[in-house]
């Protein structure tokens, strides 16, 4: 097993499958139990180092670590930057001195987890860095697909929206492709980085028309679109965006019957996804949250267990 999880590219198909299988076993081990806790990581320390507010991701990692009986330290470093407060390196040295076995880092700057990994001895888990990656999100998405559709290999997955600024999209393209899915990126050309077809994984397709894509997919994953992007001229108006790329009831009905709708959250209801779709039984959004804990337990177990 690898020592750090910095990018979904760190996971080949075999390793990714090991994580998903382990997550399934973890689910099984604590299913229908009163004591939702395993002693596996007793005495280990997991630090959640969050430079961005992301309550849902932090809570998910915290729950995962606690269910494995690790000691969890939450280190909220928001507002810190090089100009004011402590540098990332000094923080890293502090965590090192505290004996952190794993550091879960969320950071607004792409690549920050790579630097952290060079400064601490423990495992580093990327919980989202800038516009780069969010590998555990991709793992929980793959896990959700596997539990809903039985497999990932051979699935056709459309990822729709602001790919340019999305760490979720990058990690998903890498991981889903490695697991044999075919990924199609859909959005306005302004929000699809130039050359992304070849930059991450061969076989990635880029399309601009959502309606053409929907009838042929098994999974449609909607990305959060921030209204502020409008001010940077990425698209003319929220209304036009929703009309062209929002998933509403009519588009939901254009999907094959078995297809599922995913969203990494938090959603902009009414923007990229209509309330009707978000709350439909085809939506896996709540499951994704639950699966996030299992997948993160598996990652923590395998990373910490791998550090000999």
């Amino acid at each position: 097993m690898i020592r750090h999880l910095l990018s979904a590219a760190d996971l080949d198909a075999g390793t990714a499958t090991e994580v998903l299988d382990t997550a399934a076993r973890m689910d099984e081990a604590i299913a229908d139990r009163e004591v939702k806790k395993l002693p596996t990581l007793r005495g280990r320390t997991v630090v959640n180092l969050f430079y961005e507010d992301s309550t849902r991701t932090r809570i998910s990692f915290e729950a995962a670590a606690k269910r494995l009986s690790a000691d969890v330290i939450n280190f909220s470093a928001k507002g810190s930057s090089v100009s004011k407060g402590e540098s990332l390196k000094d923080t890293a040295l502090t965590l090192q001195a505290m004996g952190a076995d794993a550091v879960v880092i969320r950071h607004p700057a792409s690549g920050a987890p790579y630097q952290l990994a060079g400064w601490v001895n423990g495992s580093v888990l990327n919980a989202g860095d800038g516009t780069h990656e969010h590998p555990t999100q991709a793992l929980l998405d793959a896990y959700t697909m596997r539990s809903r559709l039985g497999r990932v290999d051979g699935l056709s997955v459309a990822i729709v929206g602001d790919v340019l600024h999305s760490r979720v999209a990058r990690s998903n393209v890498l991981l889903l492709s490695a697991l044999g899915a075919k990924v199609t990126l859909v959005g306005p050309p302004t929000l699809l980085p130039l050359g992304i077809e070849d930059a991450l994984a061969s076989g990635t397709e880029v399309r601009y028309d959502l309606d053409e894509v929907l009838p042929g997919v098994d999974v449609v994953m909607m990305l959060r679109v921030q209204r502020e992007r409008m001010e940077d001229a990425y698209f003319p108006s929220a209304r036009e965006y929703t009309r062209r790329y929002g998933l509403d009831g009519a588009r939901l009905r254009a999907l094959p019957e078995h297809a599922i709708v995913m969203h990494p959250g938090p959603m902009n209801r009414g923007m990229e996804i209509s309330p009707e779709v978000a709350d439909s039984p085809r939506s896996t959004i709540v499951e994704q949250v639950a699966n996030g804990v299992s997948v993160r337990m598996a990652v923590l177990y395998l990373l910490l267990g791998g550090a000999k």
Binding site: S110, G130, T131, G195, D198, A199, L200
Partner: peptide, 13 residues
């Protein structure tokens, strides 16, 4: 530089 590496690294081009 804006190119395939910047796309992969998530650094603004």
């Amino acid at each position: 530089h804006e190119g395939s590496v910047s796309v992969r690294l998530g650094l603004a081009g």
